[in-house]
Design a protein around this nucleic acid. Structure first.
Length: 351
DNA sequence: AGAATTTGACCATG
DNA sequence: CATGGTCAAATTCT
């Protein structure tokens, strides 16, 4: 625990030191140096700041989160810990399940992206493909919003117990902007992930694919030119990597029927860029963090941390956590733990 | 026919 | 009680 805190502090110091070094590099850089070099350095420096800030924001809870990970197995009264298996024989099983669903809603990780659809194509463009297959299960008029909110869940929910859902809300101000709130993470294996961009262009209206590529380029530019990403949202808040999975916790017992056959580890690998999962050196990692995201979705995505409430929800999801194979996997911690540059033994968190 | 979407009803939450 | 989120029957699509 203390060790973990120290380690976190060390990482923070490392980040800041690295940022300083990079700034120095930039300072010493030949004024005639290639613009790309400058931008690359700038990018790294900003990344250092972002990561540091992110650590600070999360730092307060870090101390709680780590033991929480360890406590996951021993606090069985959370959403999946309600031991649903027993309730299967209960006539009220369904109601119980229903309740659990609502309980779960609170504990699932949540993050928001704002997606701008190319305005030229107009209204017929629906929310874009993000490489996953979704099934719409509801639509609701939202108070004060001009457009209804659409609810999607993973197509493989029944087959693979994937609990990922998303809500798509068209922006009032700019109809070409969709706010997509993701909840939970995919535990399913989606074949389309092999080539998400390709798959998406196949599945969606063909004319979008080109636009997406353009947007991808455009956002790449945004990232490389100082991260001033218009007014969509603040990408630097990406860093709370709660929204990205990493290694599944090993000793899962599988009590919840919802996750009757939890998907194996490589499904996560298939769902997200390896850059999230196996950080290399910070330098190489930071940039890939932004760029790989673009590569995954192939379009104009900006992650937005929803709120502090969400963080606590997420944290509580893990503190109260359970034997859900997916409930506890989306931790910055995991990513951190994986950092090979750290001498820290991750297993200490789980013992 | 099977998959996907629509839509009204139901439920939890604040 | 109002609202947002989900369910599930009905309907549409492929």
């Amino acid at each position: 625990m203390e060790k973990a805190m120290d380690w976190e502090a060390n990482r923070l110091i490392n980040e800041l030191t690295q940022g300083r070094d990079l700034a120095n590099q930039l300072k010493r850089l030949d004024p005639k140096a290639a613009r790309d070099d400058c931008e690359s350095l700038l990018e790294k420096i900003l990344s250092c700041y972002e990561k540091s800030l992110s650590m600070l924001n999360w730092g307060a809870s870090v101390g709680e989160r780590r033991p929480a990970m360890g406590g996951v197995m021993e606090s069985p009264h959370s959403f999946a810990g309600s031991n649903p298996r027993n309730e299967l024989s209960d006539p009220d099983c369904k109601d119980q399940f229903h309740r659990d669903v609502f309980k779960k809603r609170k504990t699932l990780p949540r993050w928001t992206e704002q997606v701008r659809v190319c305005s030229g194509t107009g209204a017929e463009v629906g929310p874009l493909d993000d490489g996953y297959s979704w099934r719409k299960y509801g639509q609701k008029d939202i108070l004060g919003a001009n457009f209804p909110r659409a609810y999607y869940r993973c197509t493989h929910r029944n087959v693979q117990g994937c609990l990922a859902t998303k809500q798509v809300q068209r922006s009032d101000e700019d109809a070409s902007i969709f706010q997509i709130t993701y909840r939970g993470r995919h535990t399913c294996i989606q074949s389309s992930h092999l080539t998400p961009a390709l798959a998406s262009s196949e599945r969606e209206k063909p004319k979008q694919s080109e636009e997406k590529q353009e947007q991808s380029q455009e956002i790449h530019l945004n990232f490389t030119t100082g991260l001033k990403v218009e007014d969509l949202s603040t990408w630097e808040e990406n860093f709370p990597s709660f929204s990205f999975p990493s290694t599944p916790i090993e000793s899962e017992n599988e009590e919840s029927p919802i996750f009757a056959e939890p998907v194996k580890e490589n499904s996560f690998m298939g769902s997200y860029s390896p850059s999230f999962l196996s950080p290399t050196t910070p330098e190489s990692n930071y940039f890939s963090l932004s760029s790989c995201q673009m590569d995954i979705f192939g379009m104009d995505y900006n992650l937005q941390q929803t709120s502090e409430c969400d963080i606590t929800e997420i944290i509580s999801a893990h503190t109260s956590g359970t034997n859900s194979p997916i409930g506890d996997l989306d931790f910055p911690l995991d990513q951190v733990v994986l950092d090979p540059s750290s001498p820290f033994d991750p297993s200490e968190f789980f013992t």
